[in-house]
Design a protein around this nucleic acid. Structure first.
Lengths: 190, 190
DNA sequence: GTCTATAGTGCGATAGAC
DNA sequence: GTCTATCGCACTATAGAC
């Protein structure tokens, strides 16, 4: 008999998603998740800092998703075009196949204020890293911070609409609509 | 001897602020706060849903601060002008006298990720209420949501700079600079 | 892997205001 | 009498310390 199975982390995440969906987040204890995944409670907390974190692993991927296209852009690219590039990259990542999973995951998050707070925290971290990246590229303040806030905010609003019930349009199409709305807000067409 | 003193809620808040400042948020227990304010732990949780909430009471004031000037504006006011009005109202609220207290409070929050998450949650609630208010005024989607997000985001960025060490400018002056930066981002001057 | 502190809940009892 | 604030106590789960 093997002492431990590989992929414990992934198994814990999948188990948690399933139990949260079946009984709700609050009604599911860490002990329950751990036992179902054949590990101890202690092992759960070695993989995830807290109970919520099991749903939010892989945020580094998000930063890379935004950072790579920005780093590859020509040095004289305008900040707003960098925002567009980042959103385009997000649109490539969130393709049709990921929509069902994203909907299930978001349903759990939207049912629990504590999880919503964690999500906002993750987005705030992303904003900070993105702002630093833009400053490294020579964008001054407060332009860099405003651009980072805008990129992540539009990303979030786009994502929320993308997973809305009945929504069929692509991520990129929705993002484009949001960017147009922002442009109209700031400089209204008379 | 009286069974209870009036103003329990306010006393708990003041006590908490003081203890958090002295020993830090994590090192201060709810029992400690309650005992110092001459009530039991149970009474603390009657007034505040959780430990963090003792620092965030009075968010309704914030909504009113934004909502009143918007409700009073002429029906045909452009959304971006409504954003400006809301920020002007915030500037009236956050005058010179409030800066020292705001700095102390923010120092506690910035030292603790859990408190930062709660702050973001409060701002998110504000965004939702503000978006609803704009829709009630006839602003369509996604313009209403984008305007609400923008107003609260610029408010937050302005607030952060307003309490930054060494910052002397008024809230309104900083808000104006942030709005200009946003306008430049979206429609760069060539 | 075990032990423990702390946060947070549920419910019944009690004291005072009205 | 009703209503509300407080207390007291038993209890669970998270999370961290050892």
């Amino acid at each position: 008999m093997v002492r431990w199975q590989p992929g414990t982390r992934e198994r814990l995440q999948a188990t948690a998603m399933q139990l949260f969906t079946e009984h709700g987040y609050d009604a599911t204890t860490v002990v329950e998740i751990a036992r179902t995944a054949d590990v101890t409670e202690r092992t759960f907390f070695r993989h995830f800092a807290d109970k919520r974190e099991v749903l939010f692993a892989g945020q580094d991927d998000f930063l890379a998703m935004f950072a790579v296209p920005i780093e590859r852009a020509p040095a004289d690219t305008a900040p707003f075009d960098l925002v567009r590039l980042a959103l385009h990259a997000a649109g490539t990542y969130f393709d049709r196949d990921k929509r069902p999973f994203s909907r299930d995951r978001q349903a759990i998050i939207e049912a629990n204020p504590a999880l919503q707070e964690r999500e906002l925290g993750k987005l705030a971290t992303l904003k900070i890293h993105l702002g630093a990246l833009l400053r490294d590229r020579g964008v001054s303040e407060p332009a860099a911070t405003i651009a980072a806030e805008t990129a992540v905010t539009v990303f979030h609003l786009t994502f929320q609409q993308w997973i809305a019930p009945g929504e069929e349009r692509s991520f990129e199409e929705i993002a484009s609509e949001r960017l147009d709305a922002l442009a109209s807000l700031v400089h209204p067409v008379r």
